[in-house]
């Protein structure tokens, strides 16, 4: 590959990395997994003056459930770590379902959860998951740390509220009040293909009753679609054919698909509705642990 010329730095501390970003004045770019940045460099869609490789900064590679039940994912956690984590598979079904569907097995060994969220690709799986789970990012800049709620993070395709001199160091998923349930489905023509449509569903259940629900979509709009409003069809109720159908229709109405070579707008909306139904139905018939 023959990218444009760039300077490369591999700092050992977050403070150093932030200094480099600050000095870059927007022309420096963070390299975590390189899942999207490296292809963009290759195609010369991106031509930063400087790459700040954060892979040598210790302490960013953790998946942790705190005592309060909240989930914390460090900036260098690879998709594969989430896919293989026993804790995740037991306690966070939406992430557990999405992890094996991210990109392809090779990319999953390098690409990071936080990097994917920051890339803000409308097709990104993790941004949708984060919105459905009502997560937030912890970001650090020259003036210290701040939290950005996921719903306030994505501005549009590849655009976020992250400042050029800030690094997202952690993703946080709040604890459920009851038991976390949910799922993730994606229609792709091939492993690693961009999604025709993806659906993230997060449920917070007490027995058969829905305490909270989150929905988000990827691939069916100019940015990740927040469909959390559809929770109104489910909260305080049981997952029945009627409530499921109502929620699925509400989520599908939120999609903003475009007709392209992956399918017509109507088809993609239909897939969204079908997938919401499938995830909710699967959760309605499962025994709650």
């Amino acid at each position: 590959m023959y990218p444009s010329r760039f300077k490369y730095e591999s700092p050992k501390t977050l403070e150093e990395a932030i200094k480099l970003l600050d000095a870059g004045k927007g022309e420096a770019k963070v390299l975590a997994g390189g899942q999207s940045l490296v292809p963009m460099l290759k195609l010369r869609f991106a031509f930063p003056d400087q790459i700040v490789d954060i892979n040598n900064i210790p302490g960013l590679d953790y998946i942790r459930f705190d005592a309060d039940g909240s989930l914390h994912i460090g900036a260098l956690v690879r998709h594969e770590h989430l896919e293989k984590s026993v804790e995740i598979s037991k306690r966070q079904p939406t992430i557990a379902a999405a992890a094996p569907l991210v990109a392809d097995p090779i990319v999953r060994t390098r690409g990071t959860f936080v990097g994917s969220v920051c890339h803000a690709d409308p097709q990104g799986d993790w941004a949708a998951t984060m919105i459905a789970l009502n997560g937030h990012l912890v970001v650090q800049g020259p003036k210290g740390k701040r939290n950005i709620a996921m719903k306030d993070f994505v501005l549009g395709p590849y655009a976020t509220t992250l400042n050029y001199n800030e690094i997202a160091i952690e993703a946080v998923i709040p604890a459920p009040k009851g038991v976390a349930r949910g799922g993730y489905l994606k229609l792709e023509r091939r492993v690693g293909d961009f999604a025709t449509a993806s659906v993230a569903v997060a449920l917070d259940m007490n027995g058969d009753t829905v305490l909270g629900a989150g929905f988000a979509l990827a691939g069916v709009g100019g940015k990740t679609i927040d469909a959390n409003d559809a929770a109104s069809a489910l909260v305080g109720q049981k997952l029945t054919e009627a409530t499921i159908a109502k929620a699925a229709a509400l989520v599908a109405a939120k999609a903003e698909p475009r007709t392209d070579h992956r399918g017509s707008a109507e088809y993609k909306r239909h897939i969204v509705e079908t997938f919401v139904k499938r995830i909710l139905t699967a959760n309605s018939t499962q025994k709650v642990a």
């Binding site: 229609l187 023509r189 025709t196 992956r262 399918g263 017509s264 088809y267 239909h270």
Partner: peptide, 8 residues
């Protein structure tokens, strides 16, 4: 024969 064509 992509899924959207078959569905259509």
């Amino acid at each position: 024969l992509m899924p959207n064509r078959v569905y259509e």
